[in-house]
Design a protein around this nucleic acid. Structure first.
Lengths: 112, 112
DNA sequence: AACCGATATGTTTACAAATACATAACGCTT
DNA sequence: AAGCGTTATGTATTTGTAAACATATCGGTT
């Protein structure tokens, strides 16, 4: 079974910072309200998830993730309204990419 | 400076075997007529290039690279006519992919 | 038969990335 | 002030990948 695959991401200063991984992380943060729980759900170490959030915030015009420590529930994480816009843009981009591979995949003889 | 990037490849049985790397390797083999020279040009170890060729041949209907050892010039490598077809298909696919990112990149607000 | 330049293959070493472990810091609640 | 759950950060360990090194193999030429 052969398959055509495509992946797209955003680079800032030659360094990739927004792609499938960070996109999924943002969705988990939105769902869990916690960076540590989001990392666990993705089977990713907390350190890696934390570093990912730093890059996301650093290279964006506005912060994508707001982290809070201490407080009632010990702290937490949430995605900013700006992040929601970006996530939506990335989703629609992925949709168009998927349409392309579905269309072009049929034309490739070496997929057989 | 932010940039939208995209990459496409072919997987066989969930394992990626044809992508930018192998594609470039085939072009170098075609130019050099030698696997070791092609690997050197790509700053890649001979072992890695050799393993890449094995995967390419294994997952393809017909062999993509013909390796010959011994003989007048010690041996050599060449791409098959079938490989030329695949390389051409991949080139046109990349072109269409590039057109997509050029088109969609303008619509993304978070590229600014 | 000896030589040559390329492929073929195994072993070792080096490096990078991810994880695991440990601990501190924070702020609300009680 | 003590406890809690989370973020924040440093260090050590593991893991996986790539390169480096060594050697064997092949087949034509001389």
């Amino acid at each position: 079974m052969k398959q055509l695959k495509i992946k797209c991401w955003i680079e800032a200063d030659g360094e990739k910072y927004y792609g499938p991984g960070p996109h999924e992380l943002l969705k988990q943060i939105q769902k869990e309200g916690s960076l540590s729980k989001a990392a666990e759900k993705m089977h990713m170490s907390y350190k890696k998830a934390w570093a990912m959030v730093q890059r996301l915030n650093q290279f964006s015009e506005e912060a994508l993730v707001i982290l809070k420590k201490g407080g009632q529930h010990g702290g937490g994480a949430e995605v900013s309204p700006y992040a929601l816009e970006i996530m939506k843009e990335y989703d629609t981009l992925q949709l168009k990419v998927k349409q392309l591979i579905d269309q072009e995949g049929k034309l490739l003889k070496f997929l057989k």
